[in-house]
């Protein structure tokens, strides 16, 4: 072919140019250094976790050995009075306090959150969605101290007026604290469940509509079961958030370590105990200091279990549909 001998627009690279090397012209140390630095930044998360565990464990270990509190006494004791004389370190009252406020919160937030998710994913027009979802995100971003204040100065008096059994010792009440927590976790449930429901392949939805199913049935019997692992994940994450919430319970739940699920009662939660006790300048190594970490360890273990479970569920639905 004569054409090959001619020099075209890119003639500089003709057929008989010297054979270039396939080896790297330089060792590219810069590239490797950058990868190492980026990897180190990612590894910081492992360091953080380790640091959390270590900072919790050492004083907790002291709590059980140096301060000589029995594990059985701690886990199953029904009297929480760490700063009184005689002191008592039964964690059950504040554990139940935590469970109580979380439970009341979930009771309020689960139906509302799930219904909102169903509306967002199955009923809302794209325009409505685009409006409502960010508003819910704003709600998720409201500082919990603001929600706590709202609970204390608005919800609590109003509820005491309407449902007196909900507030035994105004203005403090586990049920009202739960309600405020519920307000805080609704967006978590709504947002993650909505994502899970929307990631159900539209083929499934169309098939069901094609068979003549109503919107409600498609939503509750096709989409909901198909998205169940994502929905469960949203509930568990919300639960974890409720258990770990501090400011709302500090403001609204009161400070009495009552071993009860009564929504009208004032309770002390694990987080409230930590927040309330650790504010003062307590000295390192004192029994009060160690108690904070022992309670912190228990709280960390509970939320860790919930988080790991939720992460598993999220992975499950991602594996299926993505």
């Amino acid at each position: 072919m004569e054409a090959r001998d001619t020099i075209g627009a890119f003639g500089a690279r003709g057929a008989d140019r010297p054979l270039p090397s396939l080896e790297a012209p330089s060792p590219r140390y810069g590239e490797k250094l950058i990868k190492a630095l980026l990897g180190a930044a990612a590894f910081l998360s492992v360091i953080t976790t380790t640091a959390i565990v270590v900072s919790l464990l050492i004083p907790t270990f002291d709590f059980f050995t140096k301060d000589d509190i029995g594990l059985g006494e701690f886990l199953f004791g029904t009297n929480w009075a760490p700063t009184f004389e005689p002191s008592s370190f039964g964690v059950l009252p504040i554990l139940v306090g935590t469970l109580s406020t979380s439970l009341w919160g979930m009771l309020f937030a689960v139906p509302i959150g799930l219904a909102s998710a169903i509306w967002l994913s199955e009923y809302a027009s794209p325009r409505q969605r685009k409006l409502v979802k960010p508003v819910l995100e704003v709600l998720a971003g409201i500082p919990t101290v603001a929600i706590g204040i709202f609970g204390l100065v608005f919800l609590s008096p109003v509820i005491a007026e309407v449902l007196p059994f909900m507030v035994n010792v105004p203005p403090f009440s586990a049920g009202v604290a739960g309600l405020a927590i519920g307000l805080m976790i609704v967006p978590i449930i709504a947002s993650i469940s909505d994502d899970a429901m929307r990631s159900v392949p539209s083929g499934l939805r169309e098939a069901a509509y094609g068979l003549g199913a109503t919107k409600m049935k498609v939503a509750t019997r096709v989409i909901f079961p198909a998205a169940i692992s994502g929905i469960i994940a949203s509930l568990v994450l919300a639960g974890s958030r409720a258990v770990g919430e501090t400011m709302v319970v500090l403001l609204v739940a009161g400070a009495s370590p009552n071993l009860t699920f009564d929504p009208g009662s004032s309770v002390l939660t694990m987080t409230a105990f930590i927040g309330q006790t650790a504010t003062g300048d307590i000295s390192t190594g004192s029994i009060t200091y160690d108690t904070i970490f022992a309670v912190g360890s228990l709280l960390f273990i509970i939320t860790l279990a919930l988080n790991l479970f939720a992460i598993r569920m999220v992975r499950k639905y991602r594996e299926v549909y993505e």
């Binding site: 054979l19 270039p20 090397s21 396939l22 080896e23 790297a24 012209p25 590219r28």
Partner: peptide, 20 residues
């Protein structure tokens, strides 16, 4: 082989390969 050189040889740099 690319012009007789093993494209998957141990010293071969994929970036350099893609330049060519």
């Amino acid at each position: 082989l690319y012009h007789g050189q093993d494209l998957y040889g141990p010293k071969v740099d994929p970036v350099q390969v893609r330049k060519m």
